[in-house]
Nucleic acid binder design. Structure first.
Lengths: 146, 146
DNA sequence: TGAAAACCCTGAAGTGGGTATAGAGTCAAG
DNA sequence: CTTGACTCTATACCCACTTCAGGGTTTTCA
């Protein structure tokens, strides 16, 4: 199958497939005389695995680790379990952080129930007088709100 | 005060302060003969506001909007309220998405309670056989898990 | 006084995980 | 034989910084 077909079948943009190849996540495809990439079913399987991992919000580095294990069927999968445990922790931490953030934002929002002038806006004043929280400072594994 | 002092006082890396100046979030500072930036207390206040917004996980574009209102004290602050409402929505949505993700990850984790070989690992098999979810596909305002 | 240390400058490139573009080549149908 | 759909490579862009290279300035201390 050609790249467009694979893209269609997997729900992955063509550019993303080429990007995964460049990144070494997908092995280089065979080529036709005209340099078109030709994919076998194994490629489709591997791509589906990668996309599934990404839909679970794993980084490409984490995906690389899992792919390495898939390629070494006799290896002990303890590291896979660890990776997943850590990923779950990161997600749980991020949820906690976002919950705290939501609370803070709702408190801030309540400071201006009805629009006034900017000078009197309880939100703008609230941001000014809030003590700096270390919320966004730490390096995080799980992305923020955007 | 010089840039290092402002960095210390605000808990902001020096490079980030220069970056905010380049981005137009902070007005250009006065300079000494030797081209060192010199900051007045207003700069410190403005920087604190920006950092507070960032700790609330707002984008720099959102911060720009809020700063515009701070600079126009007579404007109606309705847009500020809107911006905050939308930001809160984004955060709430992200929390929901991450909760679903956590659940999925925990289910996956339970498929391999004790380490085996990679070939028998319930996690690797689970990723293979899971139907593709649209989780990571949508454009999001609030970051994921990393 | 002079040298070392601490501070600061600019400009460019890198991060992650793609997305978008330009400009060209390839292939199938009519 | 031409049109249009498909594909190719290479490059730039997104965000919010961070890091680096290669200098210049100011302070401190012997």
């Amino acid at each position: 199958m050609r790249i467009g077909e694979l893209a269609q079948a997997s729900g992955t943009p063509i550019e993303t497939i080429r990007f995964y190849e460049r990144e070494g996540l997908l092995p280089a495809a065979a080529r036709t005389e005209g340099k078109y990439r030709i994919y076998a079913p194994q490629h489709a399987n591997r791509l589906a695995f990668i996309r599934q991992c990404r839909s679970l919000d794993m980084t490409l580095d984490e995906v690389r680790v899992l792919l390495r294990f898939k390629d070494q069927p006799l290896a002990d999968c303890g590291e896979v379990n660890c990776l997943l445990d850590e990923h779950i922790s990161h997600v749980a931490e991020r949820i906690q952080a976002l919950r705290a953030l939501e609370k803070e934002l709702r408190a801030l929002r309540s400071a201006c129930p009805v629009p006034h002038t900017a000078a009197d806006c309880g939100i703008l004043q609230g941001i000014d007088h809030a003590g700096a929280k270390p919320a966004a400072a730490s390096k995080r594994h799980v992305r923020g709100a955007h």
